[in-house]
């Protein structure tokens, strides 16, 4: 473990907590893409199947459980408890266009052709594009609540910090995982225009409005 990965994990946890609190406190999931939340739940489920078979550390197991519970809890709040506030008219990204190609690619490019490894690879590839429905929804509505932009900033920062972690691990341990690195770079690049808007607008107290 290194500080970059730890701060990255905490940023990821912060993002998930921000979103959960936003939905719970405002009793509304307006402006939030339920499809992205479904994809994130799928990412955690397919990645953490080794939760009980491959013990890494208490921290690792506890965080996996927290991610699973909070992401499924968010999906539950969006599609059941506060379903009436779910904006399905703007959350129209065809996620099958993500899941199918990612599923195919995970069979073609992986470290090991075993069920657990293919599911892990699927999870890594899926996570890199899972935010697309959310970014698409914001581009359709043309704006995002400030709390949602904080959520996205924390979520985008987590994988950017993981990239720093991979550089650090490469130089200190000689460790590198090309699948995770390439997918992590794609994932972080997808946030770039949002990062620009966040830093130039939200941090100056303005509402996040996409140029029409």
């Amino acid at each position: 473990m290194n500080v970059f990965r730890l701060v990255g994990d905490l940023s990821h946890l912060l993002a998930i907590i921000i979103l959960l609190l936003k939905i719970w406190k405002t009793r509304s999931c307006a402006g939030v893409s339920g499809k992205s939340q479904i994809l994130f739940s799928l990412v955690f489920i397919t990645r953490y199947l080794d939760l009980f078979t491959n013990f890494i550390s208490v921290y690792n197991s506890v965080m996996k459980i927290i991610y699973l519970v909070t992401s499924l809890g968010t999906v539950y709040l969006m599609y059941f408890k506060f379903k009436a506030t779910y904006d399905s008219n703007h959350d129209t990204f065809r996620i099958e266009f993500l899941v199918v190609p990612v599923g195919g690619l995970s069979f073609l490019v992986n470290h090991d052709f075993t069920p657990l490894e293919i599911l892990w690879t699927f999870s890594i590839y899926l996570e890199s594009v899972a935010i697309l429905p959310q970014l698409f929804m914001i581009s359709k509505t043309g704006e995002a609540e400030t709390i949602t932009s904080h959520y996205l900033f924390a979520l985008g920062s987590y994988r950017a910090l993981y990239i720093v972690n991979w550089v650090y691990r490469y130089y200190t341990e000689g460790f590198f995982d090309l699948i995770a690195i390439v997918a992590g770079c794609v994932q972080t690049i997808l946030y770039c225009d949002f990062f620009y808007l966040y830093i130039t607008k939200v941090l100056k107290g303005k509402q996040l409005k996409l140029p029409a």
């Binding site: 990965r5 994990d9 990821h12 990645r47 080794d50 491959n54 890494i56 690792n60 965080m63 996996k64 991610y67 470290h111 090991d112 490894e117 892990w120 993981y162 972690n165 460790f175 590198f176 995982d177 699948i179 995770a180």
Partner: peptide, 10 residues
């Protein structure tokens, strides 16, 4: 390689 020790990252 990354996987034989089991993926140690979240």
């Amino acid at each position: 390689a990354a996987y034989d020790a089991g993926h140690d990252e979240l």
